[in-house]
Amino acid sequence: MLEVCELNVAYGESNVIRDLSLRVAPNEALAIMGRNGMGKTTLLKSLIGLLPARAGSIRLDGADITKLPSYQRVAQGLAFVPQGRMVFPLLTVEQNILSGAAKSGHRTVPDDIYRFFPVLEDMKQRRAGNLSGGQQQMLALARALISRPRVLILDEPTEGLQPSIIEEIAQTLNLLRAERGFAIVVSEQVLSFALDLADRFLVIDRGRIVHDAARSNLDQDKVRSFLTV
């Protein structure tokens, strides 16, 4: 379980995340939704350790990881796919995937990675910079998943992707979660993608959680009202 308690995160003197608390159960998919500038990316960067917490705590399966650097959080079981994918454009697909294997020790790409992302096997010797946006997103996911995370953190994974690719990624993540049993925390603005993936929805506004609902009783119109400018 990932537990965040009264978290505060700041840029300089500006407090962006304010007394935020949440829990993510094992195998649960949690969507964090909200308009741009409301704190979604700041929250996810704080979870993975790219931004320090000013106050509060982050715990993974009971262990306090609040002060651990990012690489140690990855070793503990977190994985992060940043907004914009951030693949290494001059490395091959295979080299990119293996760059995420420090914890697992893989020297070759496991068969199940290519089973879930067959297009990457076909292109494994191609430079990542020559892939389409959808292929690069699949590559970023594969690089994160090779570490066998307990919690996969995704920041705006549908950004710039066409609808058919968005649907394919949601289906693949659902299959992976069912097979591997990891949790997902996803920052998202595309409600249709979140509905395909998430069990529970949080809406963040000015650094605070203002709405929390399970998919089974989600008021979609209310969530959309938080997403409109």
Rank of each mutant, 00 (worst) to 15 (best):
V9A: 00
A10T: 04
A10R: 06
A10W: 05
Y11H: 09
Y11G: 00
G12I: 01
G12R: 03
E13C: 05
E13D: 07
E13S: 11
S14C: 12
S14H: 13
N15I: 04
N15A: 05
N15S: 07
V16G: 00
R18G: 02
R18S: 06
R18C: 08
D19K: 09
L20W: 09
S21A: 08
R23I: 07
V24T: 03
V24Y: 09
V24C: 13
A25L: 08
N27C: 04
N27S: 10
E28C: 07
E28L: 08
E28T: 00
A29T: 01
L30Q: 03
A31M: 14
A31W: 15
G34L: 03
N36T: 04
G37H: 15
M38Q: 13
M38C: 10
K40H: 12
T41Q: 02
T41S: 14
L43N: 06
L43F: 13
L43S: 06
L43M: 10
L44C: 11
L44V: 06
S46T: 04
S46E: 01
L47A: 14
I48G: 10
G49P: 03
L51M: 09
P52D: 04
P52T: 01
P52A: 04
R54K: 15
A55G: 11
G56H: 08
G56P: 08
G56C: 08
S57N: 11
I58M: 12
I58R: 08
R59G: 12
R59Q: 13
D61Y: 15
G62E: 04
A63M: 08
D64R: 10
I65D: 00
T66K: 07
K67D: 15
L68S: 11
L68H: 11
P69W: 05
S70I: 09
S70H: 12
S70M: 14
Q72M: 13
Q72R: 15
Q72K: 14
R73G: 05
R73A: 06
R73L: 07
V74L: 02
V74A: 11
A75Q: 14
Q76F: 09
Q76I: 00
G77A: 13
L78T: 01
L78V: 06
L78E: 03
A79K: 02
A79D: 02
F80Y: 12
V81M: 07
Q83T: 07
R85Y: 13
R85I: 02
M86R: 13
V87K: 01
V87G: 02
P89E: 13
P89N: 15
P89R: 13
P89D: 13
L90V: 13
L90C: 09
L91C: 04
L91E: 00
T92W: 10
T92Y: 10
V93F: 09
V93N: 04
E94K: 15
N96L: 01
I97Q: 05
S99Y: 10
S99H: 08
A101V: 03
A101M: 07
A102L: 10
K103N: 02
K103L: 07
G105M: 10
H106N: 04
H106P: 02
R107G: 07
R107Q: 10
R107A: 10
R107D: 05
T108H: 14
T108Y: 11
T108K: 15
V109D: 04
